[in-house]
Design a binder for these strands. Sequence first.
DNA 1: GCTAGTCTCTGTATCGATACAGACTGGATC
DNA 2: GATCCAGTCTGTATCGATACAGAGACTAGC
Lengths: 354, 354
Amino acid sequence: MKPTLQAVADAVGVSRSTVSNAYSRPDQLSAALRERILDAARQLGYPGPNPTARSLRRGFVGSIGVLFTSQLSYAFTDPFAVRFLAGVGAAAERHGTSMLLVPLPPAVTDARRAVENAAVDGFCVYCVADEEWALDVIRHRGLPYVSTAPRDNAGADERYVGIDERAAARSAAAHVAGLGHRRVALLADSVLPDAPAGPLTVAGVDQVPHPTTRGRLAGFADAFAEVGVGWAELTVVNAPGNSRKAAAAAIAELFDQPAPPTAVLAGSDVLALGVLDALAARPAHDRPTVSVTGFDDVPEAAAAGLTTVRQPAEEKGRIAAELLLDPPADPAAGHVLLPTALVVRDSTGPVPRS
Amino acid sequence: MKPTLQAVADAVGVSRSTVSNAYSRPDQLSAALRERILDAARQLGYPGPNPTARSLRRGFVGSIGVLFTSQLSYAFTDPFAVRFLAGVGAAAERHGTSMLLVPLPPAVTDARRAVENAAVDGFCVYCVADEEWALDVIRHRGLPYVSTAPRDNAGADERYVGIDERAAARSAAAHVAGLGHRRVALLADSVLPDAPAGPLTVAGVDQVPHPTTRGRLAGFADAFAEVGVGWAELTVVNAPGNSRKAAAAAIAELFDQPAPPTAVLAGSDVLALGVLDALAARPAHDRPTVSVTGFDDVPEAAAAGLTTVRQPAEEKGRIAAELLLDPPADPAAGHVLLPTALVVRDSTGPVPRS
DNA sequence: GCTAGTCTCTGTATCGATACAGACTGGATC
DNA sequence: GATCCAGTCTGTATCGATACAGAGACTAGC
């Protein structure tokens, strides 16, 4: 058994308090005694105050939780999520705080429990799917949190950092519409819950539950509405899982149709890259000319020449963590909207004359 | 103030133990009473047992630490490290365990403290630089750990998962030597501590402190020794920080020399990609033909056509976490060497006749 | 010489739970 | 009717520290 603080106190012949002070408040005792205590601790093999006991007594843990409402492995697969984590990490580093990554079991009951049991001082909630239940649990625990999306019913004291999804998406769609495209597919993750991969009929964009997806689809639709292409004329394609593979699989059949879309607007770069994969997989003679746009501007997008909407990923993570660790006095400052920019590359062009 | 377990007990008129059991051992009380307790808890806004207090009493935390002996942000910048993390995450997910990422302050004293204070049940130590001090602290705390490199003085009960660095490196170098290259540069991170970027004189490979770097350089040297090129004839180039930029900067000057190397063997893909960057940055008429090899086979390597040594990154993380969470009965099974494979792509070719 | 003030150090209360041994029921068994 | 047992619930000890008020000793200041 590892010795406790009491054991060190006994060995030196001082009180427990004094040993505690030797570690946590060196100014509370003489340097000489402190040395004696630390020496004795070394001798006994005392590894320093037990972090858990210390956390209990002090009332805080010194770490923040990062919540992905999806498989934890997803966080490392999605390049945007990785950049986000890097930002959180940078802020955590500056504050001397650790990051706890909490995997969530698939069943909601279990997932709630996982959030309840996480030993953290607060949460950065990265919005993947509907995370309302997670926010409930966090609020219930009385912990502060920052989410990465503006929420419709956000309380005044609720902090978030996001972008104007709708306007950003609209800018990409306006670019594509401006190039003359009218037969267009919109590709997104989790358009409707539990929907299969592939083309999907969606009555209206407000049917889409996931706020981020909804915002982006709405932005796409806005731009096309302006050139006279209504929602019903747009093909919505579901790609569950937001992976390159899923996107390629979901979009593939469209290209076999007699009149394939001349443009695909994807809800993320990962999906857009999947579309490019699907195109590349076809023999050259049977490869339609399709404009493709992404969203996020992950590192891979530049290499692929993908036209996309840039949003500052690391910045998002950094600011999320900073809002959490160092809350602004003015609650209005807790709502951050980051700038986005359309980045035009080679993956979009005018409609081919056929 | 959030209510405690005691408050719920008082409200229902039962003992604290019973409330505790309602959460942690449902079989210890009648279903009816359990419901009454949980109802009261909801009513009072009791968020469930305090994770810290529970950890203290139970003696374990339910999370494992992942230690990068470098900036935490490095972990998200290096694609190999990201894949490793993904593997750890997958294993953690299966075990219902959280991952704590602990940022280490630059000063060793502070860094020791950070490791001492981490509330975890064990550590996966990802070897970036010399991490002996970290292992010391962990052992001192009596916590189990798994490191990602075979260590020279590893105790029998010490677990690790790694590759045969030397043999793997040798395979890449043998390929390059077989192509006829004799004027060769070896590029690596932290060849000597605090050495500047650029070409470096290293008396012998055993001068290199970092075991991974040493192993790879030794492997490179082995293959060239076999074709009669001694250590002294090899140019060793230091690229501190293992970044693409650092590599490009460190290697650039070599290409200005009258007789530049015809091949560069890099200690990682990131460095190798940096070399390709440095070459691409030169005007076409002044661009030497240089064979380049990397190490790791990160996703970017394939796109860049980089010849490299593949090692299973996720596997490494997954196995590290599993050795930690589920220690094999047989201590010999705690030492895992993963297979590697030379992947030949376009970045290597025969020596140009000039 | 007396009051203040500063340094050190101690003692007790407390953080919020879980483990474990045992007490109390009520029915089944013989 | 005594015995046993399973099913429930309670009480006490404990996990390993920190906070805070205060006790002594010692120096300063007047």
